[in-house]
Design a protein around this nucleic acid. Structure first.
Lengths: 341, 341
DNA sequence: ATGAAAGCGCTAACAG
DNA sequence: CTGTTAGCGCTTTCAT
């Protein structure tokens, strides 16, 4: 079965291909009667114009690449997927394909995927922190890009990120509102921007209530590569101080999972002896024991916002970076209320 | 900066576009000296032929769509991601784009994504169970497809799936080898094929040792939609029988997670009082307490096999369905050894 | 071994 | 308002 072309439709409708093209593209300059006729035939025949031809003449690929980091942790992968769903939904409205690619893990020999080298993409969306030389190269190729959930040092690139300061503030305040004043803090500091945000949110909450804590309760050596062990060690250090905190705020749910494991291993009950809050609301958080109270980061929203941004950029419009509100507290079982009822 | 074309390269090399096309496509009929010259210039200029043109003339999209179910559980998403990585790796070798799409959740009004309607895809890969009328429609459109990790009722469609019978057998044998003979079983039966496989693996292990169990220990009403509650209820039913099993085999890790939760809630210690094994090795399994002993299903392998299949089908070759070996036991902490040391 | 030319299916001047 | 026509950048037949 031969594929229909615009010519066939034109013949069937008794008009020229131009006219058909016009109605397909919703352009003015066609009498409403012919337009109606053409539309009817298109519907009847279930005709779709060849994307390949349009790509060629329009010099547009109708592809948007999403690039993820090879060898990212499974938990990050889960994020990716949530983000991807946001992207996908939006992409449909605009007629773009979402094509999935990856780049080597941090530190490995870097190379762009073929789709980018061939410029078979109208825009690219990076997931999470991306070295700026990569972003530079993309820019050099003249391809618009936006990065999702990174913590950029400057505003040279478009991004959509979560408001981690607000998240940290909300998490810490929840502890305070439950009567905690002896609050420890576990975070990473590999991304300066992330660290700054999360720390200042934490501090703001404490300062607002005039709470002070020993510096040994601030542990900044968790990191994503050795997630589990690093956060575990942070918790051990906190537990080895003379005064024990009644609660610990973890910058990321994964750290909380490890820290809780550590606390239990040392004979503490959670939340009876020590309470925990995290940020992210990863799927795991519902399954650890006790289920983790946390701040939900809306990855799907971030995905659809990023999609809107990249499309604007492709269309040559100016875009503002966006920071999505991140104060959605999910109360589960990891925080004990110290207040008298 | 204007994009280079095959014409430019031809001019620079002092040959005709035809020749350039020939060398790009590795076709014979070019003297090795001119070939060398052309190759050199291509390298120098970093030239890549326009994919759009090739698509048009070759009538090939160089796209392979992967279609996932909208609203699938986050756990499935994680599977998807692993599969996607397998696909991705392979796709690079063949120069296809992997484009990500979704279809409505089971039961919702069905519609194909645009990329398929437009036939802007050379093949499609479905993730997990897919209604056969959908597969039929794709076939009608003349687009090759393969489905991954489904449990097809017949062999009309190409698929790659895990050997769940073997997995079930291996899991159950592990229990038996640890001295268990009172073994309960939690599964779903919504997919007849899956149920049959898993049940016969379980039975085979039991029969081999002449073990018999009360039928009330066989609970088949777990299901993926209400994962958590359904498996929990299955476990409650098992616990309400007069004789308690010393172990339970769960057809899927998720069921094990819920069943363990249930056992603990009823005051049983795991694995001291009751042992558990699952199948899948989802990420969660390492994090529940105790960490779950399970059979690993290699989703990434399934992805890359599916990619090889779809490419063969696109090239008009015959393909055999593949069943990937699934007896990789991952021993963790959820099984107690009843045997004297 | 190389080149000229046609054409894939569409869009967009331009002419009528 | 409608039609003619010239490409987009490649592949491929057919001459040479």
């Amino acid at each position: 079965m031969e594929r229909l072309t615009i010519k066939d439709i034109a013949r069937m409708a008794g008009v020229s291909p131009t006219v058909v093209s016009f109605v397909i593209n919703n352009k003015p300059g066609v009498s409403s009667s012919t337009r109606k006729k053409v539309i009817e035939i298109i519907k009847e025949t279930n005709f779709r114009p060849s994307l390949s031809s349009r790509r060629l003449i329009l010099k547009k690929s109708f592809n948007i690449s999403i690039v993820v980091r090879k060898g990212a942790s499974p938990f990050n992968n889960l994020f990716y997927f949530e983000i991807a769903q946001g992207l996908l939904e939006k992409s449909k409205e605009y007629g773009y394909n979402i094509v999935f690619t990856d780049i080597p893990a941090l530190g490995d020999k870097f190379e762009f995927p073929e789709i980018i080298k061939q410029k078979d993409t109208d825009g690219v969306i990076f997931f999470q922190d991306t070295e700026s030389y990569i972003l530079n190269e993309i820019e050099n190729l003249g391809i618009p890009c936006v990065v999702i959930d990174a913590h950029p040092d400057n505003d040279a690139y478009s991004y959509v990120m979560a408001d981690y300061e607000k998240a940290a503030y909300t998490a810490t305040m929840h502890l305070i509102e439950n009567g905690h004043t002896d609050i420890a803090f576990i975070t990473s500091c590999t991304s300066p921007n992330f660290y700054t945000q999360v720390f200042s949110g934490f501090k703001k909450a404490l300062d607002g209530k005039g709470i002070s804590i020993p510096s040994s309760w601030i542990q900044i050596d968790a990191n994503d590569e050795r997630n589990e062990e690093s956060a575990y060690e942070c918790m051990e250090r906190i537990l080895s101080t003379k005064n024990k905190p009644t609660a610990v705020f973890c910058a990321v749910d994964m750290y909380a999972a490890s820290a809780i494991k550590c606390a239990k291993a040392h004979g503490y009950r959670v939340p009876e002896d020590i309470s925990f809050v995290g940020i992210d609301d990863i799927i795991l958080s519902r399954y650890i024991e006790p289920a983790l109270t946390t701040i939900r980061i809306d990855k799907k929203l971030m995905g659809s916002l990023a999609m809107e941004m990249i499309i604007k950029k492709i269309d040559g419009q100016h875009v503002e970076n966006v920071i999505v509100a991140s104060d959605n507290l999910i109360v589960r079982d990891s925080v004990r209320n110290l207040r008298p009822e």
